[in-house]
């Protein structure tokens, strides 16, 4: 097993499948009376969050606690971060406190890579800037596999602000590794220069992609992007790239609709779609805990 999880690209097909299979076993825990395992008793997991993300933090926290690890939440607010302590000094502090794993969320791309240089423990990337969010990709893959029964050969459309999306980057890498075919759909301004080197197709036209899609993953689009001239207006964006009921009905019958949250209802997705039976948005949240349990077990359990 690998030591850190910094990028979805760190996972080969066998390891990624092991994570998903393990997550499936972890999921059965949800039906049990005692929702706790002794596996990581005596281990310390630090949630080091430089960015507000309550949903990701509580997901990791629940995962670590169900495995009986001790959890320390270290958030940018009201901590030494606001006094300007450097990431390196924070790393040395956590090291001294005996952190076995640090789950880090940071607004700067690559911050988890830097952290991994400075501590002996395991580093899990919980989202770094506009780079990656590997556990999100794992829970998305898990959700697709449990809904559609496979990943290999699936047509997955990822729609929206690919340029700024860590979810898109991690999903492209992981889904490619697991044999799915990814199409990125966005206005040209929201696709990075150099995207042609990614193992994915690109399209500027959502309507032409929908009839063949097994999965449509809608990305959050921030309205402020409008001010930087990425698109003319929110209304034009949702007309061209938003998923509404009419577009949803053009999908194959078995196709599912995903969203990493938090949603901009009315912008990239309409309430009709978000609340439809095709939507996996609530499942994704539940699957997040199982997948993160699997990741923590395999990374921490694997440490000699």
């Amino acid at each position: 097993m690998i030591r850190h999880l910094l990028s979805a690209g760190d996972l080969d097909a066998a390891t990624a499948t092991l994570v998903l299979d393990t997550a499936q076993e972890m999921a059965s825990l949800a039906d049990r009376e005692v929702k706790k395992l002794p596996t990581l008793r005596g281990r310390t997991v630090v949630n080091l969050f430089y960015e507000d993300s309550t949903r990701t933090r509580i997901s990791f926290e629940a995962a670590a606690k169900r495995l009986s690890a001790d959890v320390i939440n270290f958030s940018a607010k009201g901590s030494s971060v606001s006094k300007g302590e450097s990431l390196k000094d924070t790393a040395l502090t956590l090291q001294a406190m005996g952190a076995d794993a640090v789950v880090i969320r940071h607004s700067a791309s690559g911050a988890p890579h830097r952290l991994a240089n400075w501590i002996d423990g395991t580093v899990v990337n919980a989202g770094d800037g506009t780079h990656e969010h590997p556990t999100q990709a794992l829970l998305d893959a898990y959700t697709m596999r449990s809904r559609l029964g496979r990943l290999s050969g699936l047509n997955v459309a990822i729609v929206g602000d690919v340029l700024h999306s860590r979810v898109a980057r991690s999903n492209v890498l992981l889904l490619h590794t697991l044999g799915a075919k990814v199409t990125l759909v966005a206005p040209p301004t929201l696709l990075p220069v150099g995207v042609d080197a990614w193992p994915a197709e690109t399209s500027y036209h959502l309507d032409s992609v929908l009839p063949d899609a097994d999965v449509v993953m809608m990305l959050r689009v921030q309205r402020e992007r409008m001010d930087q001239a990425y698109f003319p207006s929110a209304r034009e964006y949702s007309r061209r790239y938003g998923l509404d009921g009419a577009r949803m009905r053009r999908l194959p019958e078995h196709a599912i609709v995903m969203h990493p949250g938090p949603m901009n209802r009315g912008m990239e997705i309409t309430p009709e779609v978000a609340d439809s039976p095709r939507s996996t948005i609530v499942e994704q949240v539940a699957n997040g805990v199982s997948v993160r349990m699997a990741v923590l077990y395999l990374l921490l359990g694997g440490k000699v």
Partner: peptide, 20 residues
């Protein structure tokens, strides 16, 4: 499956889980 209850995880490392 007892993997997650073993006391030798630290010594032998994590492995794939069996079914319960």
């Amino acid at each position: 499956d007892v993997t997650l209850y073993r006391d030798d995880l630290r010594l032998r490392g994590a492995r794939a889980l069996g079914r319960t």
